Amino acid sequence: MLYIVTLLILITDQLTKYYADKLLKGNAPYVIINGFLQFNYVENVGAAFGILKNKQLFFIILTFIVLIGMVLFMIKNKRLNIYMRWGLVLIIAGAIGNLIDRIRLGYVIDFIDVKFGSFYDYPVFNIADCAIVIGTILVSYLVLFDKYETTGSEW
């Protein structure tokens, strides 16, 4: 089941980026909810929030190392509960989605643009980023509260 979820996240991520490229690139943002949500094509040559711009080789190598480490961690630790496995799978799927862009294009396509009126304009992101953030929040919670291994009875 975890493999299927990984594949579904990858397909959804790559399809939405494909359509963002075809429909949004070179066009004005497509407003969904005025002052809150729009689709806006952005080529991100950095990491989260555009930091470390034009360091694609660094990000590719780092992503491979982290992915290998996470997969080995999951294989080696048979006591990880299903919630921890789901969190790690979300991170892995998102990382692979953005890695595909970095290798194929030299940048990551971002297109989901959330604003909170004139108060705050959140950096543009994509489906892979959503998976990474949700997975990271889940894994962080489980590690902080020591709930990442099976105990015979899941919480």
Results as ranks from 00 to 15, higher is better:
Leu2Cys: 09
Val5Arg: 06
Leu7Glu: 09
Leu7Val: 13
Leu7Gly: 07
Leu8Thr: 11
Ile9Cys: 02
Leu10Gln: 02
Thr12Leu: 13
Asp13Ile: 03
Asp13Pro: 00
Gln14Ser: 07
Leu15Phe: 13
Thr16Ile: 07
Lys17His: 05
Tyr18Cys: 07
Tyr18Glu: 08
Tyr19Lys: 11
Ala20Ile: 13
Lys22Ala: 03
Lys25Cys: 06
Ala28Ser: 15
Pro29Cys: 12
Pro29Thr: 15
Pro29Gly: 07
Tyr30Glu: 11
Val31Asp: 09
Ile32Lys: 12
Ile32Cys: 08
Ile33Ala: 15
Ile33Arg: 13
Ile33Lys: 13
Asn34Asp: 15
Phe36Ala: 14
Leu37Val: 13
Asn40Val: 14
Tyr41Gly: 00
Val42Lys: 04
Val42Phe: 02
Glu43Gln: 15
Glu43Asn: 10
Val45Lys: 14
Phe49Leu: 14
Phe49Thr: 14
Gly50Ile: 09
Ile51Trp: 12
Leu52Cys: 04
Asn54Ile: 13
Gln56His: 12
Leu57Val: 15
Phe58Ala: 05
Phe59Thr: 01
Ile60Asn: 05
Leu62His: 07
Leu62Lys: 08
Thr63Gly: 06
Thr63His: 10
Val66Trp: 06
Leu67Met: 04
Leu67Gln: 03
Gly69Phe: 14
Val71His: 09
Leu72His: 12
Met74Ile: 15
Ile75Gln: 11
Lys76Met: 11
Asn77Thr: 14
Arg79Cys: 11
Arg79His: 13
Leu80Ala: 09
Leu80Trp: 05
Asn81Lys: 03
Asn81Asp: 10
Ile82Pro: 01
Ile82Arg: 12
Tyr83Pro: 00
Met84Tyr: 06
Arg85Gln: 09
Gly87Thr: 10
Gly87Val: 04
Val89Lys: 02
Ile92Thr: 09
Ala93Val: 05
Gly94Ala: 06
Ile96Asp: 00
Gly97Ile: 03
Asn98Ile: 03
Asn98Gly: 01
Ile100Lys: 04
Ile100Ser: 01
Ile100Ala: 01
Asp101His: 07
Arg102Asp: 00
Ile103Phe: 05
Arg104Met: 13
Leu105Pro: 01
Tyr107His: 05
Val108Phe: 03
Val108Tyr: 03
Ile109Leu: 02
Val114Trp: 04
Val114Cys: 12
Phe116Val: 15
Phe119Thr: 15
Phe119Asn: 12
Tyr120Met: 10
Tyr120Phe: 11
Asp121Trp: 11
Asp121Pro: 00
Val124Thr: 07
Val124Asn: 02
Phe125Thr: 01
Asn126Thr: 04
Ala128Tyr: 04
Ala128Val: 01
Ala128Lys: 04
Asp129His: 08
Ala131Cys: 04
Val133Leu: 10
Val133Asn: 02
Ile134Ser: 00
Gly135Tyr: 00
Ile137Cys: 11
Leu138Tyr: 08
Leu138Met: 10
Leu138Gly: 05
Val139His: 07
Ser140Asn: 11
Val143Leu: 12
Val143Pro: 09
Phe145Asn: 08
Asp146Tyr: 08
Glu149Asp: 12
Gly152Met: 01
Glu154Lys: 12
Trp155Cys: 05
Trp155Leu: 11
